[in-house]
Design a protein around this nucleic acid. Structure first.
Length: 558
RNA sequence: UGGGGUAUGGUGCAAUGGUAGCACACCGGACUUUGAAUCCGUUGAUCGUGGUUCGAAUCCAUGUACCCCAGCCA
């Protein structure tokens, strides 16, 4: 990937620098991104991805993609394909290092036997409920299972029979023998294997016992020679356990480093909650443009480079954080401002008739894609007697400082002519049918020889040439800044912003008929737009507003 | 009443014993053929209390607040 950002520097790179200084990993930096294929990736995962891949890149190291697929009942290939597509879209490459924890099932099984033989693991016949009771509480120690000291040979035999399918789900487990009184409950003889008669998306029916995440993750890192294993804060409590397994197994020891995950205002980030929005039908799916998922952001026209830049600017630390979604939007706009060609489109059209412009005349202006770039390419835009302008760009009795079309003001039609209000035609209810104006033929191109000042510039589309298209405008899914932090008894799902989508029938300049999927344009004075890759067709174009422009006029009105 | 973490402007991140800085947001102003962008400027912070030191966000003591852990989820 292009080197667009300076080398990252944060508490993680401090640790790596220290390792390099003392020679702990011989200068190697090898990371991994370890998703569970049980859902779609969201912007929070993007933080992990950018950190895992980005830091390795900065140090000339490598990053593995490893699916942590130890729970067959929740996982599916559908998700592995989607996850791979998202990571590629973000701009990262794991080359040939695509791994699965399930690749290590046989090795893990051998290691389980090794621990039994060392007297460090035993087969336990406590039920799930009993296991919980025996574990104790946060403040009280647990007590030993009656099976804890059974003979090694017996455990070995039982484990083999577990694998052979002799036991029901939940009836028996393999547990590590650590310390039932340990202050960290994760160290109180954690389960290593459970019986699960379920088909796995990769290993099929080969197994009916599956290792737990805790008995898998650290060893998977070890097998792959991972040096720095980044994960989120809640796994800090697990680190002593991973280290215990690694030490007892006498295998390569990676360094786990925990960081605070990303939270965004005005949205929810947990897979469970996102799934609820989908299942409740409040959004169209995981790729609904309002969702914080990467599929949604891609569909919406967010550039992956902007997402990377966003992650770099929010930084990384160990304190819980909530990023204002405005920062994300700022960086998206910042990127798009550089790359999006300018076009004219009218979302809420009102017709304007230029009385002194000949009825049969039409002109084609060459208008630059990037008006501030002297070398910009141009496109042809037709002009004629009848045009559309935004309904907001005309007011009969405007407030002070209203610079758009109104009875007492001359305004500029962008790149075309100056016009002046003449009169107005309304229907019986008072709705504006058409606005009549006159134009100044001397103002061709939007300026005059006398250099007179025209404060307002509005955009327009020739009525005769306009292309019809649906446009979809989105707002935040939640008006609440922290939709997960609600008063007692309230449910986040009831706070969903039902007005977060608005569909309009717009009039576009004709060049937009040639737009391609994936291209993002700036519809001048409104926002950034892209064709909906899922629903748009040449016959029925459908545009998504990626993001509106900052509207300081609207802000002033408040 | 266990253990593990974290506290710096509204938000996020820096400053690693020596002038508390950057970004977003906010508020002013300039410019403008996008009320965008750009440019300039103004507010505003070290969780509390003691201590060490010429000097503390940083070191020590103590207190407080918040987060995580009692799945055979990850």
């Amino acid at each position: 990937m292009t080197d667009e950002t300076p080398k990252r520097s944060n508490f993680i790179t401090d640790i790596i620098d220290e390792h390099n200084r003392i020679g702990r990993f011989d200068g190697r930096v090898h990371t991994r991104f370890p998703p569970e294929p049980n859902g779609y990736l969201h912007i929070g995962h993007a933080k992990a991805i950018v950190l895992d891949f980005g830091i390795a890149q900065d140090y000339g190291g490598k990053t593995n993609l490893r699916f942590d697929d130890t729970n067959p009942v929740k996982e599916d290939v559908e998700y592995v394909d989607a996850i791979k597509a998202d990571i590629r879209w973000l701009g990262f490459d794991w080359e040939d290092r695509e791994f699965y924890a399930s690749d290590y099932f046989e090795q893990l099984y051998e290691w389980a036997i090794k621990l039994i033989k060392k007297g460090k693991a035993y087969v336990d016949e406590l039920s799930p409920d009993e296991t919980r009771e025996y574990r104790g509480t946060l403040t009280q120690p647990g007590k030993n299972s009656p099976w804890r000291d059974r003979p090694i040979e017996e455990s070995l035999d039982l484990l083999a029979r577990m694998r052979a399918g002799e036991f029901e789900d939940g009836s028996i487990t393999l547990r590590a023998k650590i310390d039932m009184a340990h202050p960290n409950p994760l160290m109180r003889d954690p389960v290593m294997y459970r019986v699960l008669h379920a088909e796995h998306h990769r290993t099929g029916k080969a197994w009916c016992i599956y290792p737990t995440y805790d008995f898998t993750h650290g060893q998977s890192d070890s097998i792959e020679g991972i040096t720095h294993s980044m994960c989120s804060l809640e796994f800090e409590n697990h680190r002593p356990l991973y280290d215990w397994f690694i030490q007892e197994l006498e295998i390569f020891a990676p360094q786990q480093i925990e960081f605070a995950r990303l939270n965004l205002t005005h949205t929810v980030m947990s897979k469970r909650k996102l799934r609820r929005l989908v299942e409740a039908g409040l959004v169209d799916g995981w790729d609904d443009p309002r969702m914080p998922t990467l599929v949604a952001m891609r569909r919406r026209g967010y550039p992956p480079a902007a997402i990377r830049a966003f992650i770099d600017t929010v930084g990384v630390a160990k304190s819980e954080n909530f990023i204002d979604v405005e920062l994300l939007e700022h960086i998206i706009r910042d990127t798009l401002n550089e790359t999006a060609k300018r076009r004219m489109a009218i979302l809420n059209p009102v017709k304007v008739i230029i009385d002194n412009y000949p009825e049969d005349k039409e002109e084609w202006f060459d208008i630059p894609d990037f008006p501030y770039d002297a070398n910009s390419a141009t496109r042809k835009v037709p002009f004629s007697r009848e045009i559309y302008i935004e309904a907001d760009d005309f007011m009969e009795s405007p407030p002070p400082k209203y610079f758009r079309l109104c009875p007492e003001r001359e305004v500029r039609l962008m790149n075309a002519y100056y016009i002046k209000y003449k009169d107005i035609v309304k229907d019986e209810e008072g709705n504006i049918l058409e606005i009549h104006v006159t134009y100044d033929p001397e103002s061709h191109g939007g300026q005059t020889a006398d250099k007179r000042k025209v404060k307002g510039t509005i955009h327009w589309v020739s009525a005769r040439h306009a292309v019809d298209a649906e446009t979809k405008l989105y707002e935040q899914m939640f008006l609440d800044k922290y939709p997960e932090d609600l008063p007692e008894g309230e449910n986040f799902i009831d706070h969903f912003n039902k007005d977060s989508i608005e569909v309009l029938q717009a009039k576009l300049e004709p060049s937009l008929a040639e737009a391609e999927i994936g291209e993002v344009f700036q519809f001048v004075r409104d926002g950034y737009f892209t064709l909906d890759p899922l629903t748009s067709t040449p016959e029925k174009p459908s545009w998504i507003r990626t993001l509106s422009l900052v509207d300081s006029w609207a802000k002033m009105q408040k």
